[in-house]
Design a binder for these strands. Structure first.
Lengths: 161, 161
DNA sequence: CTCGCTCATGTTATAAGATAACATGTCCGG
DNA sequence: CCGGACATGTTATCTTATAACATGAGCGAG
C-alpha cells in the first residue's frame, strides 16, 4: 500500500477489484469517490475483518480531518452496494468476495461467515443449501425475508489442527 | 411486575420459568441469585429484545447502585447457560424459549432469529434443516463449528399483511 | 474459630462503536 | 448567476461494553 497524491495505492489484485467496483458504480449512476475507494481498498487489504475505527486510523494517514462519520458514510455506501459486509458479532467489516457477481440485488440472500475464534480470520461462503433452508424456514413462519446473515463461530481448518 | 422486599415479582408464567431455571442451575452446581433472577425475569417479560441499558434502567428501580457491569455479568451468566441469547444485529437480548430442553450443551446449534424490522419483535426458531445445512457447510470447509446464529431480517406475518 | 479461598456483587473509570446535526464545498443544469 | 443534489467536513453526543480494583458473604481445612 503506497501513498500518492491521489490517495492510497493498493496491490495489483486489489486495484483490479477497485476498478471493477468503480465500473459497477458508474453503471448504476453512482460514484466510487476517492474516499470510498480508499475505504474499500483498506477493507480488501485486511486479511481479517476490520473495525470502523481501525479504518479511521488508516484513513487519517492521508486525510487529516477524517472523523467517524467519514468512515461510516463510506461504509454505508459500500454496504448498500454489497461491496462490503458487516460481521455483526465482531462489529467489523469484510470485503465481499463475490461483489461483482450479484450487484445490488442479493437481498434475501443469506450471507454466511465462518469466523475462526483463534486466528480471527473470516471466510465468506454462499452455501445454497443454507440459503434454501433459511428461505423455507422464513416462509413457513409467514415471514417476508429481506436479508439474512449466518455467523458460524469455531476453529478454521488450520487452527483446529 | 410488582416490587417486593425480595426484588421484582413477575407474571405466573414467568415465575414458573424462573423456578425451572433456578432448578437447572442448582443441578449444575451454580446459583440463580436474586440479581440473575431479576435480569432473566426482565428479559422474559419483554415482548421485544431488550438492550443492556434498558435492563439497567429497570434494575435500578430496586437496586440503586446498579451499574453496567451488574447487568452485563448477569447476562453473561444467563447466556452461558442458554437462558438468554443475544441478537447481534440489535445489540439486544431475548429469552430462549426452549432453555429447559437443551441445558448448557447446545453448542454447535445454529440458533435462529426472525427479526421483524417493522414491529421489532423477534421469534426464535430451531429449524433442523438449517441446523443441518450449517453443520454440513462448516464441515465441508474443515471448520470446527462451536456455535452459530442465523439472523433473518424482514417482515413478520402480521406486518407483511 | 479463624484463616484463606471462591464466588457474587459493588464501584469507578474508560474504551469502543455509532450517529445527530449542522457547515462547507463542488458540480451541474436552468 | 442561482439553486439543487451530492459528498464531505466538523463538532458533539449517544450507546454499548469492558477493565480494574474493592467489598462482602459463605464455607471448608486446619
Amino acid at each position: 500500500m503506497a501513498v500518492s497524491e491521489q490517495g492510497l495505492t493498493f496491490s495489483p489484485e486489489i486495484e483490479a477489484r477497485l476498478e471493477k467496483a468503480a465500473r459497477l458504480c458508474s453503471e448504476q449512476g453512482t460514484t466510487l469517490t476517492p474516499l470510498r475507494r480508499e475505504v474499500l481498498g483498506l477493507v480488501l487489504s485486511s486479511d481479517q475483518p476490520i473495525g470502523a475505527y481501525a479504518l479511521l486510523d488508516h484513513l487519517r494517514r492521508t486525510r487529516a480531518g477524517a472523523a467517524p462519520p467519514t468512515v461510516y458514510r463510506a461504509l454505508d455506501f459500500l454496504r448498500e452496494r454489497g461491496f462490503v459486509h458487516k460481521v455483526e458479532r465482531l462489529n467489523a467489516f469484510v470485503g465481499c468476495p463475490s461483489a461483482a457477481d450479484h450487484v445490488g440485488h442479493d437481498h434475501g440472500h443469506a450471507v454466511q461467515f465462518l469466523i475462526c475464534t483463534r486466528c480471527g480470520r473470516v471466510t465468506e461462503t454462499e452455501d445454497e443449501a443454507i440459503i434454501a433452508a433459511v428461505a423455507q424456514a422464513a416462509e413457513r413462519h409467514g415471514f417476508r425475508q429481506m436479508r439474512a446473515t449466518v455467523e458460524i463461530e469455531g476453529l478454521c481448518r488450520a487452527c483446529a489442527g
